[in-house]
Design a protein around this nucleic acid. Structure first.
Length: 576
RNA sequence: GCCCCCGUAGCUCAGCCGGACAGAGCAGCUGCCUUCUAAGCAGUUGGUCGCAGGUUCGAAUCCUGCCGGGGGCACCA
């Protein structure tokens, strides 16, 4: 209801229908008014009429008296719409009464599985996992807030041939030694040592091969050792997730191994459907439209020539499981862009096999890579991938240094503020870049208090809370009183309109699976607030009515900032 | 060779279901703190929207070709 744009859109649609049924009003924000409807121009061409005449007919047919102060035809046939202050104020008052701040839940909630993060057991989480984890988490929060039933699934890499090697290494170093190493989070050290030993010893290679067989055939002791590796890794991942402040936890783990028992039926059902083709000893499906280097049909290898299952089999099983058992209406795969062909093939095969029925949507939510200052994949000085855990620690350390340098003494723990700022900076930098693009990781830029950064937004929020804590504000109810806000001053009006755009921003994130829309919106809101803050005294406004109105605007700005940041998984301290 | 993504101001990016002079942040330059957190605000400099065609009354946006960057292309996941 708070979305004034949708109200305008609906009214205009009715008016356009009168002129030509089904015509799109093409409503956009405008530099010349609050909004402009461009629909008369294309419609005029279709009708072979003068654009301004068509616009005039639309305006005549439109019922906008209660919402618009002025409706004017301009230029070649634009319809410029300026909202009535009374309408803006009334809508704002409605938002103020709404715990959801004007964001209505979706009419038809969908059960949505979000597959994201997916680190590998006994391997370090690195920056490659950063984007997927942050983006997936933000989408879960937004979809959940809009009322969808979100099922998080962390598709852990917990199965496959490397586990023969890893388990043998576990045995060699001794179980308690290994657990010790893993529990302090040195997964990379463990993996590297295993790898080095594997490469150096034919005996170990042979044992590893036998161990894989034992694992796959369900040998009890082997499974026990495997569970040790998984459990220690999951515990470590959970530490990282808590450090990062994401929703993901041990209960969300749906590792590859969880699909093991379904793999044979994936193969046999594909075979029964006549989709399976044997090629060079491997059992494959050749979905139409995919070619390899030589221009030959490209297979999705479901079962390898050695009888083992490929990851395609697991991915297909997960699709079936999520549709049949979980009952999902939508499957989101928050997975890096390089996997797009693989996922497209999996979806294609699932369609062919009838595993993705009508009404179930599968989407690859692809994201780009994290690049270093040299615009190449971000790596450490040593050329290794950057350990995610260390990166997060560095973010907090750097934030701590800036907070300390400011000489401020935020109420509450300085360490907590540093954590919110450091982690928030990393998340906002990531989320504010359009997700399909690669993005350049730059400490100084993301941690700056100037510009489009989390620290700027957090600071804007903290300033508002500070104003709301002032005695004059507390006395006036700090914006909680049911007042009719005034939007007479340009800065008041601009802030009010920005606040009314919150619902549209949140919905756009869900519709386009693009958290960056909300990230941009929050920056615009923060700048609208600071402009208002500069020109309009809030707690110190001389008149009681003005004070109450501005306190309401300020409180709403803080609430929307806090909620919006929360939907992105970013904390908003009350003081900093 | 084929497919996918990207190429917009010095740097980082928005806009891309066609519309009124191409926007923002940073950096640069100018101003503004005895007054609610100046970690702020206001103003300003800066662009052949990779190139060339095409469609259109109108193209950063749609189509085609080319150039440049990244990624993927059968038994690792």
């Amino acid at each position: 209801m708070a979305d004034v744009r949708r109200v305008l859109e609906a009214r205009l649609r009715t008016a356009f229908d009168v002129v030509s049924p089904g015509a799109d009003p093409v409503l956009r924000p405008s530099d010349h008014a609050d909004f402009q409807a461009n629909g008369a121009l294309p419609l005029a061409r279709a009708l072979g009429r003068e654009p301004r005449e068509v616009a005039a007919d639309v305006v005549a047919a439109a019922d906008l008296d209660d919402v618009c102060a002025s409706v004017e035809i301009s230029g070649p046939g634009f319809v410029n719409l300026t909202l009535a202050d009374s309408y803006v104020a009334a809508e704002l008052a409605a938002v103020a009464r709404d715990v959801r701040l004007g964001v209505a839940p979706v009419a038809e909630p969908r059960r949505t599985v979000v597959d994201y993060s997916a680190p590998n057991v006994a391997k370090e989480m690195h920056v490659g996992h950063l984007r997927g984890t942050i983006i997936g988490d933000a989408l879960c929060r937004v979809l959940g807030f809009l009322g969808d039933e979100v099922v998080r699934e962390n598709h852990l890499g917990d199965w496959g041939t490397p586990f023969g090697m890893l388990i043998e290494h576990l045995v060699d170093v001794g179980e308690s030694e290994a657990v010790e190493e893993l529990s302090v989070g040195d997964l990379d050290g463990f993996y590297r040592d295993a790898r080095a030993a594997f490469d150096a010893s034919e005996d170990l290679r042979e044992r590893s091969r036998r161990r894989v067989v034992a694992l796959q055939s369900g040998d009890v002791e082997t499974l026990r050792l495997w569970r040790v590796l998984v459990a220690e890794s999951v515990r470590y991942f959970d530490d990282v997730y808590r450090k990062l402040g994401v929703l993901l936890g041990p209960d969300d783990v749906a590792g590859e191994s969880a699909y093991n028992e379904m793999l044979p039926s994936v193969v046999s059902d594909l075979e029964a459907a006549g989709l399976l083709v044997e090629s060079d000893g491997a059992r494959c499906v050749f979905p139409p439209g995919f070619e390899n280097r030589e221009g030959d049909p490209l297979p999705l290898i479901v079962q390898k020539s050695d009888g083992g299952f490929g990851y395609a089999a697991t991915d297909l099983a997960s699709i079936r499981d999520r549709v049949d058992r979980v009952g999902a209406a939508r499957l989101l795969y928050v997975v890096g862009a390089p996997q797009s062909q693989h996922l497209a093939m999996c979806f294609a095969v699932a369609h062919l096999a009838g595993w993705l029925p009508e009404g179930v949507e599968a989407v690859h939510v692809a994201f780009g890579s994290v690049l270093g200052p040299d615009h190449k994949m971000l790596r450490s000085r040593a050329g290794r991938s950057v350990k995610l855990s260390s990166l997060l620690d560095e973010a907090v350390e750097r934030a701590e240094a800036t907070v300390a340098a400011s000489g401020r003494d935020p109420a509450g723990s300085r360490a907590a503020v540093a954590r919110a700022v450091g982690i928030g900076a990393v998340k906002y930098a990531d989320l504010s870049t359009e997700r399909s693009r690669d993005y350049v990781f730059d400490w100084d830029r993301m941690l700056a208090f100037d510009g489009r950064t989390a620290p700027y937004l957090q600071y804007a929020h903290a300033r508002i809370r500070s104003v709301l804590r002032r005695p004059e504000a507390v006395a006036a109810g700090a914006g909680d009183a049911p007042v009719a806000p005034s939007v007479r001053e340009p800065a008041e009006r601009a802030l009010a309109l920005e606040l009314l755009g919150f619902e549209a921003a949140v919905r756009a994130v869900a519709d386009e699976l693009a958290p960056s829309v909300l990230a941009s919106y929050l920056y615009d809101l923060a700048t609208a607030f600071t402009a208002f803050y500069e020109t309009c005294p809030i707690a110190k406004a001389p008149e009681q009515a003005t004070r109450e109105s501005r306190l309401l605007l300020a409180r709403l700005a803080a609430d929307v900032l806090a909620l919006g940041l929360d939907l992105l998984g970013i904390e908003a301290p009350d003081s900093m």
